[in-house]
Simulated assay, not measured.
Amino acid sequence: MTLALQPAFTLTVDLAEPREVGRTLAGHRRVIPILGGTVTGPALTGEVLPGGADWNLVRPDGAIHVWARYELRTTEGFVVSVTNEGLGEPGKPIPTRPVFEVPTAGPAWLSVGFFLGELRLGDHPGQVRIAVSQVIPG
């Protein structure tokens, strides 16, 4: 079996100043609040709702572990919960695996698909972009 990536949408996320937790046994922890943003793409459009955050960790080996929890609102009005986790090297795009929790009448394809993201810095300070693609059996 071969697998392919099909672009689904891009999240442009605006972030607040990090809250520094500081050095922990796991590494340097900071919490980065999410202020909002946009969802654009061929398969989904809407907005990133304010109120989530990324519980970001820089491990002792220098790797960056992202673990974010937040919500989207589609243009149809459905609120979708997102958990997005990834691990990468500083200064490089970070691969992530977003998982979606969808209301009963919402876009069910999000809750049964397998997705990969690529997190990069955005066009402005305090902004990131996550290009989300669905994994499609070929």
Score class of each variant (00 low, 15 high):
A4R: 14
L5T: 15
P7V: 10
P7N: 02
P7K: 10
A8C: 12
A8S: 14
F9R: 02
T10R: 06
T10M: 09
L11N: 07
V13M: 15
V13K: 05
E17F: 07
E17H: 13
E17K: 13
R19L: 13
G22R: 06
T24F: 01
L25M: 11
L25Q: 05
A26N: 10
A26L: 15
A26E: 12
H28P: 00
H28A: 11
R29A: 14
R30K: 14
V31R: 08
V31F: 02
V31H: 03
I32P: 02
P33M: 12
T38D: 07
V39P: 08
T40M: 10
G41W: 00
P42I: 04
A43K: 11
A43G: 04
E47T: 15
E47D: 14
E47A: 14
L49H: 04
L49W: 01
G51M: 05
A53F: 03
D54V: 10
W55M: 10
W55A: 11
N56E: 14
V58A: 13
V58L: 06
R59F: 06
P60L: 13
P60D: 11
H65Q: 15
V66N: 05
A68H: 03
A68G: 12
R69C: 06
Y70A: 10
L72P: 12
R73G: 08
T74R: 01
E76H: 09
E76C: 08
E76P: 00
G77Y: 07
G77D: 04
V79A: 06
V80C: 02
V80F: 00
S81R: 15
V82I: 09
N84C: 10
G88F: 02
G88S: 12
E89V: 13
P90D: 13
K92W: 03
P93H: 10
I94T: 05
I94N: 04
V99Y: 05
F100C: 06
E101G: 12
E101I: 15
V102C: 07
V102P: 11
G106P: 11
A108T: 07
A108V: 10
L110V: 04
F115H: 06
L116N: 07
G117R: 01
E118F: 01
L121D: 13
G122F: 02
G122P: 00
H124N: 12
G126E: 11
Q127K: 10
V128P: 02
R129K: 14
I130V: 15
S133Y: 03
V135C: 09
V135R: 01
